[in-house]
Nucleic acid binder design. Structure first.
Length: 568
RNA sequence: GCGCCCGUAGCUCAGUGGAUAGAGCGUCAGGUUGCGGACCUGAAGGUCGUGGGUUCGAGUCCCGCCGGGCGCGCCA
């Protein structure tokens, strides 16, 4: 299996160092400096940390301390044995080792420092392939379906939908960076009770009658009533027609178009819009229930059809068809699982609000009962955002027409600032979003700090072009102990950050990294003049370095769906 | 009552069992006749809710308690 477009991605530095440590460990064992262990003994993996203090080097390994128990040896002795092998390989100078030096520190750390060659080589690869910088090699490539937002089209998206939209899209971007193929999917019901109530509300307003009890209020309902075409109204009033449903579907389609536009505005594009009705119409629900029945996981009681969810550890069984024969929401859910897998996905992710955690078990149980791997069905639950204005939590009711739309929020705060806000916080923690504070702080939001660094570099590059100095193809002999070294070290960490984000399915590491990199750049800018017509050679090398810093900032922001402006 | 999530600096939040617990904002004190001052340097600010336990090592893992959120429908 070959691919012509296979990029020649260099192994990330962390992986190179990890391999070098593993080689040294193996040689130490082979030479008898470290003991063998009995078969079946579980040995630790070689994990690397980024030390908190620069004097501890570029990477630290706690391997020796973890080997102390199985080897029945002092950690310092083990560390010394491995360090000797690392030093030997580094001293050979044949270019295999990215490690310049190794120190042993109490109580058993291996502190590792990168060679300038490893740094310079990495920077060269960034210049050669800016787009590929930060894409990490795909582990097990998967086709992933990510379903999120999925608000029914009974009204515009509100700030209550904001976190799901951002968290879902950010997850998709992180998975894509990790080499996975992602489909963004939106699930909605445009024929249910709630949409019918919307239809009834529209009709009432059209006839200048009061909105029915339990109906929908708000300016958008009035707009719909005004825009309702005569032929739709006529069809709804035809004898025997379900008027509310017909008007509701029309209104739902209209609202859905608005929702799609809002989502595009904040940079979220959905690949698939799936209606609940189609799952029933195409027989997915029926077939899924049959599949459960064939496995003996279904029974009838009190006139209803139940899924025996308790078989798989749930605390109660769940109704699929009510005693009046109508399917529950859960029925559509299990049909949807089979429909998704039928499209070839091997992993499904649901982005749900924390209030849905009660439905996680039953859905995964049903997937397992139907013969799917329950681990292939994953729910990511995000916690609520409390929106605060004037010191009070904003309470909202879509039905009463009291809400702040997502569009309004983004207009106040800005898409980049809002994306940064959600990207820099773990999805599972409850957070406060003070709108006044967000507006007030928008000018000193960290996102602008990062964007400013990017724009500043762009300005430097423009200046260099104006005076006729072009960036070199690499940083040459520039590193050493000069101001370049710290910036170069910050830049080359980027693939690790992406890898960790993809593994943890969280993005706050990326925002923290981008802030740190911007700080390093600003410090470099203070200490080193980049464009200096008196020294064009050094200028060219420094231009190469700041170009790479710009690429890295742009790719980090791009990973979060945030713009990287040339000027601001 | 039971289940899940959360509790870290004045505020908003990071912290994949590792070294002296970090960032942004806010506060205070400084810095530029050079490529963008939306910048830089420094300071103050913490019994990591609490009490035990496991471990060479616990903010991180386990148990109890306190406080907050969510859920426990033939609702969606």
């Amino acid at each position: 299996m070959t691919s012509a477009s296979q990029p020649t991605t260099q192994l990330p530095l962390r992986a190179q160092v990890r391999d070098a440590v593993a080689r040294a460990w193996q040689r130490a064992v082979a030479r008898g400096a470290l003991p063998g262990v009995a078969d079946g003994t579980v040995l630790p993996a070689v994990d690397l940390d980024r030390p908190a203090h620069p004097e501890h080097g570029d990477f630290a390994a706690s391997l020796a301390m973890k080997l102390a128990r199985p080897y029945r040896r002092a950690p310092l002795d083990i560390a010394a044995a491995i360090a000797a092998e690392i030093a030997a390989e580094a001293a050979a100078g044949d270019g295999t080792s990215p490690i310049a030096s190794v120190d042993v520190a109490a109580p058993g750390f291996l502190n590792l420092r990168l060679t300038d060659t490893a740094l310079a080589t990495t920077i060269g690869t960034i210049l050669a392939d800016p787009v590929g910088w930060g894409r990490v090699p795909a582990g097990k490539r998967r086709a992933v379906n990510v379903e999120f937002v999925s608000a029914n089209p009974t009204g515009p998206l509100t700030i209550g939908n904001a976190r799901g939209a951002f968290v879902g899209d950010l997850l998709c971007r992180v998975l894509e960076a990790g080499g996975q193929t992602v489909t963004r999917e939106y699930y909605f019901n445009d024929s249910g009770t709630q949409v019918g109530k919307l239809g009834a509300s529209v009709v009432a307003l059209r006839h200048a009658e009061p909105v029915p009890e339990e109906g929908y209020h708000g300016a958008y309902v009035e707009d719909l009533a005004r825009e309702l075409p005569g032929d739709v109204l006529a069809a709804a009033q035809a004898p025997g027609a379900d008027g509310a449903d017909i008007i509701g579907r029309w209104a739902g389609a209209r609202v859905r178009t608005g929702i799609e536009a809002s989502l595009e505005r904040l940079g979220v594009h959905f690949d698939v819009w799936k209606s609940e009705g189609s799952l029933h119409a195409e027989g997915w629900v029926e077939r899924a229930v049959e599949r459960l029945r064939a496995g003996g996981h279904v029974y009838e009681q009190d006139g209803a059809v139940w899924f025996r969810s308790t078989t798989f550890g749930d605390d109660k069984d769940r109704v699929i068809y009510r005693s009046d024969g109508r399917p529950t929401y859960f029925a559509a859910d299990i049909g949807y699982v089979t429909e998704k897998f039928s499209r070839g996905f091997d992993h499904l992710i649901y982005i749900w609000g924390a209030d849905h955690h009660g439905t996680v078990a039953r859905t995964r149980n049903a997937a397992e009962a139907m013969g799917y791997d329950r681990d292939a069905v994953q729910m990511l639950l995000y916690s609520w955002v409390r929106f605060i204005r004037d010191g009070h939590e904003i309470s909202m009711s879509k039905r009463a027409g009291e809400f702040i739309t997502l569009d309004e929020l983004l207009e106040e705060v800005g898409v980049d600032a809002a994306r940064w806000f959600f990207a820099s916080r773990a999805a599972t923690t409850g957070i406060d979003f003070d709108i006044e504070l967000a507006k007030k702080q928008s000018a000193e939001n960290p996102v602008y700090y990062v964007q400013y660094a990017h724009a500043r570099i762009a300005s430097i590059l423009r200046k260099a072009t104006a005076v006729g100095i072009a960036p070199a193809s690499g940083v040459g002999e520039l590193l050493g102990g000069g101001p370049e070294a710290a910036l170069a070290r910050a830049i080359v960490r980027f693939p690790e950050v992406v890898e960790d984000a993809a593994t943890s399915e969280e993005t706050h590491g990326v925002t923290a990294y981008a802030t740190m990199l911007a700080t390093e750049f600003h410090a470099f800018y203070r200490d080193a003049r980049v464009v200096d017509e008196a020294d064009p050679e050094r200028s060219a090398s420094r231009l190469a370095l700041v170009s790479v810093a710009r690429i890295t900032l742009a790719n980090a922001l791009g990973l979060l769906g945030i713009s990287a402006p040339e000027s601001m």
